[in-house]
Computed example of a mutant assay.
Amino acid sequence: MIVTTAGTMFELVQALNDGAEQLRKRTANSISLDAGCELFIAFVTLFPHESDSFAGLKTELIKQGRKYAAEALSYREKIAQLALGFIKDDSILTHSYSRVVMKALLHAHKTKRISVYVTEARPRGLGLKTHAVLTAAGIPCTVVLDSAVAYVMDQVDFVLVGSEAVVESGGLINAVGSNQMAIIAKAAHKPFYALAESYKFHRLFPLSQYDLPTHTANILSFPSLPVQGTASSAEVAPTEAHNTSQAEKAIDFPVQRTMTPEQIAQNPDVDYTRPDLISLVFSDVGILTPEGVSQYLVGMFAG
């Protein structure tokens, strides 16, 4: 732990921002981290105090911060308890691997007869981890291809996913594939539930996938084609015919079966799910509608 030498509130907030920036540089996907850091800095600046000195204020902040960190360890258990009331003897579809979802499913297994479909969640394949843990716990679990979500949707009672962040619009940022799962669930009239610890509530307001802080110009970009030189108008038709012939011949050649690391790197890690696709958000602060998340965030950062 680093003890700051800040002598004013301005210096303390600057030190916290610098520390948050150092953490971001060490994290590939910093969305959840950003949400937690933003919340802690808001807590520091809005914290009511009656300390006689700034040193006394810092001591009290450290005390309260440690208390909050200790309480945060129980959040997943609270969420699991809240979700239990919505889980019957159901078939559930989940996505990738989420610690809070695992807590809810394992908790439900104690009193319910549940079965779980989980997406493989390429490219990292974290759905296989979910499958292994649930199977070891005695929960019937089947791995589903990411491209088979629509196929399996009629077999499930609802969808249950975790979160990287729940944003101010009430929308969800989560492992890529969550958005298409929510769209299919909406079309099939199946509830789509998100589980999120309140420290993942984030004051972002994305309107599309391209507003996410993780989006870069490299994501889903097209590679540059080699320059073949400038052809005259008389040469255009034969060249096109030649290229078509080559493309047709390529069908008979052995083709690449898996994506290369370079191709994977051009794909997003997370996506954004609109609030109108989300049925409810289960959090340690209660069961909220997407609109309720917005109201909670406004009240929290207003002090």
Rank of each mutant, 00 (worst) to 15 (best):
G65I: 00
L84W: 13
I183E: 10
I79L: 11
A148F: 09
S74I: 12
A136K: 00
K103P: 08
L57P: 01
E60W: 04
V144F: 09
L128T: 08
A121S: 14
H131G: 04
A70S: 09
A108T: 15
S51V: 02
V144I: 15
T135H: 03
S74M: 14
C141V: 09
K58N: 00
T130W: 07
S91Q: 13
A175I: 02
G127L: 02
A70I: 08
I184C: 04
A165W: 03
A150P: 13
K58S: 01
K88N: 14
F86M: 14
V118I: 05
G56R: 04
V101E: 14
V100L: 08
Q81K: 14
A165C: 04
K186G: 02
K103Q: 12
A148L: 09
Y75G: 06
G138T: 03
R66L: 15
I183L: 13
L105I: 12
S169V: 06
S91C: 14
L61R: 06
V166Y: 01
G127E: 03
I87M: 10
I173C: 02
I79T: 10
G85H: 14
G138C: 02
K63T: 08
A69E: 12
F86I: 15
E71S: 13
S53I: 10
A72E: 15
I184W: 03
Y68F: 14
I92A: 01
Y117W: 07
C141F: 05
R76Q: 13
Q64P: 06
V156T: 03
H95W: 12
D146F: 11
R66W: 13
C141W: 01
V100K: 03
A70Y: 07
T142Y: 05
S96M: 12
L73F: 13
V144R: 07
S178L: 05
R124F: 10
V152P: 00
V101N: 11
K63F: 06
E71W: 14
L105C: 11
E71H: 14
L61K: 05
D154H: 07
Q81D: 13
E71I: 14
V118C: 03
F86V: 15
R99H: 15
R122S: 04
V161R: 01
Q155W: 07
M181F: 04
A55Y: 08
G138R: 01
R99M: 15
L57I: 00
A121Y: 07
L57Y: 03
L128M: 10
I183K: 09
S74Q: 15
I139P: 02
L82S: 15
L160S: 04
G162S: 06
P123F: 08
A104L: 11
Q180W: 05
A182E: 05
A121D: 10
P123T: 09
G85P: 15
P140L: 00
S178G: 07
R99D: 15
E168I: 04
H107W: 14
A165D: 00
L93C: 08
K58Q: 03
V116L: 00
S91L: 11
L61E: 05
G177C: 03
V100I: 12
V149A: 03
G171E: 01
K58H: 01
S147W: 08
K78F: 09
A121C: 10
S51F: 04
L105F: 12
S115D: 09
K103F: 08
T142I: 08
K129F: 02
S91P: 11
E77M: 04
D146E: 14
T59P: 06
